[in-house]
């Protein structure tokens, strides 16, 4: 009997040793893995405030946000109409224009092609804007329309809309 309870006690001790040891090892590894996440100085640069008062209608600017280009375009009346009147069934990734903008004239997009990550053309006046008057990705020929939606080519999705808000009429905060 005595030996039996001895054994039980030992089993318990061994089990708790192994358990606590395993928990301790996991807890020890955690900070190491965590250290690979973006550091605080990187996170602090995660929001960008952009003054858009200088942009004329029909013009675009490119700003850097989290190391990626963000396109801000002040759309013309025609471009807005074009974007709003598209038939949803023509779209590969159907999305209403109204869901992609906060104010009709301002289109804010992450300028990274959803195919393989190239930066599409269409920001400069001299650039090819593609068949749908928006952006054209030269890598594999994806065409985006005036709402940044994919219309033709291999890209599976529309250009992403980053989180942003209007601090006032002329300042956009991205991130």
């Amino acid at each position: 009997m005595a030996e039996n309870s001895n054994n039980k006690r030992r089993d318990f001790l061994q089990l708790s040793t192994v358990t606590i040891g395993a928990v301790g090892t996991a807890a020890f590894i955690w900070p190491f893995l965590k250290s690979m996440n973006p550091a605080e100085d990187t996170i602090a640069l995660g929001t960008t405030e952009v003054d858009v008062s200088q942009i004329e209608e029909g013009q675009s600017i490119t700003v850097k946000w989290r190391g990626k280009p963000v396109f801000i375009r002040k759309r013309t009346k025609d471009e807005i109409d074009e974007a709003k009147t598209v038939n949803m069934s023509d779209l590969k990734d159907p999305e209403e224009d109204i869901d992609r903008v906060k104010k009709d004239e301002w289109l804010v997009l992450v300028g990274v092609c959803t195919h393989l990550g190239c930066v599409p053309l269409g920001q400069k006046l001299t650039d090819s804007k593609g068949e749908y008057n928006g952006w054209y990705c030269p890598c594999h020929g994806s065409h985006y329309d005036t709402s940044g939606r994919i219309r033709k080519g291999p890209a599976p999705e529309n250009l992403a809309v980053p989180p942003y808000s209007f601090l006032n009429d002329t300042t956009i905060k991205i991130g």
Binding site: R9, L13, S16, T17, I20, G21
Partner: peptide, 17 residues
Amino acid sequence: LFFLVLGTIVYLAKNRL
């Protein structure tokens, strides 16, 4: 605290063993 608790348990286990 973790090392103290683990140490105590291992110490008891070692004495048994």
